[in-house]
């Protein structure tokens, strides 16, 4: 009986591990290819490990193109991701509290609009937004990518609302009896309690902004402004690329910030995703 259980358990792990391997094989392949030279990538495409670890690709890749190195692109990505994330998370927290703990006229309508914009394809607003920002003279600056984030982002508003709903309303009521206004309730009671949701939103926002491609593609025309995503695509352009190893080395580097964040904040991320899905 015990043996059978053991065999079953081994079998289970075997299946799960095999499948895990299939899942991350592409990523492993990319990682190891960044140490291979071109001919090795092509001729031994089926061999995962490089014949020898060759760090030269990273040096070549880091040089970037046309005198602009990847340090510039990474800096741009960090600026865009961090500032945008701050704006999105803070403003979303305010709005979420407004929706979840205040009864006001027209709330239902506004909330409906908010949910509807969650379902709104970006393409619908893309062209007029472009025309508008262009008129502001914001093209070729980070502004079109950063400013809108300070006005709340429906997905995060929704996420935080879900979280606030889990906080007992008795806390608010007790504070109210103590003479707290809606505003101080938010800053003194709710804000500290929703930290996990804020962390989740921060992580997701950072990851999405880091990977954003269409926005920078439209708004940023100067290589010195490119974030990593756009630079990678220019770097990997089929009509220009000749050094796949260097390309993969930069592609590998580009996913490292996301990976690190995931490893350190796994718990929050998973809990956050679960929260939005479960109670939706």
């Amino acid at each position: 009986m015990k043996d059978r259980k053991k065999i079953k358990s081994i079998l289970y792990h075997l299946i799960v591990i095999t499948f895990s391997y299939v899942m991350i094989y592409p990523l492993l392949w990319m990682f190891f290819s960044s140490f291979k030279d071109n001919s090795e990538i092509f001729r031994y495409a089926h061999i995962l490990l490089p014949q020898r670890f060759n760090f030269e690709n990273f040096l070549i890749g880091w040089r970037g193109f046309g005198g602009i190195s990847f340090s510039v692109f990474f800096r741009n990505s960090f600026i865009l991701s961090i500032i945008g994330t701050l704006g999105a998370v803070l403003s979303s927290a305010l709005v979420a509290y407004g929706f979840s703990r205040n009864k006001f006229k027209g709330k239902k309508i506004w909330f409906g609009f908010m949910i509807a914009t969650m379902l709104l394809p970006y393409q619908v607003v893309m062209i007029p937004q472009y025309i508008m920002f262009n008129r502001f003279g914001w093209v070729n600056t980070f502004k079109p990518l950063l400013v809108p984030s300070f006005f709340g982002q429906p997905f995060f508003i929704f996420l935080i609302i879900q979280f606030i709903r889990g906080i007992p309303i008795e806390l608010d009521e007790a504070a109210k009896i103590d003479g707290c206004s809606k505003y101080s309730i938010f800053f003194k009671i709710i804000l500290p309690l929703i930290t996990p949701a804020l962390i989740t939103a921060t992580i997701l926002s950072f990851l999405w902004r880091w990977d954003d491609f269409l926005g920078p593609l439209i708004y940023l025309n100067r290589p010195t402004l490119y974030p990593v995503s756009l630079a990678l695509r220019m770097f990997a352009d089929p009509s220009a690329i000749s050094n796949w190893g260097a390309m993969f080395s930069m592609a590998t580097l580009s996913i490292i910030p996301g990976l690190l964040i995931f490893i350190f904040f796994q718990r929050y991320l998973i809990e956050g995703i679960i929260a939005t899905g479960i109670k939706g």
């Binding site: 046309g66 290589p223 695509r233 352009d237």
Partner: peptide, 10 residues
């Protein structure tokens, strides 16, 4: 000079 260069496709 302020340069803007890239590959043909984009």
């Amino acid at each position: 000079f302020e340069t803007e260069f890239g590959a043909f496709s984009g």
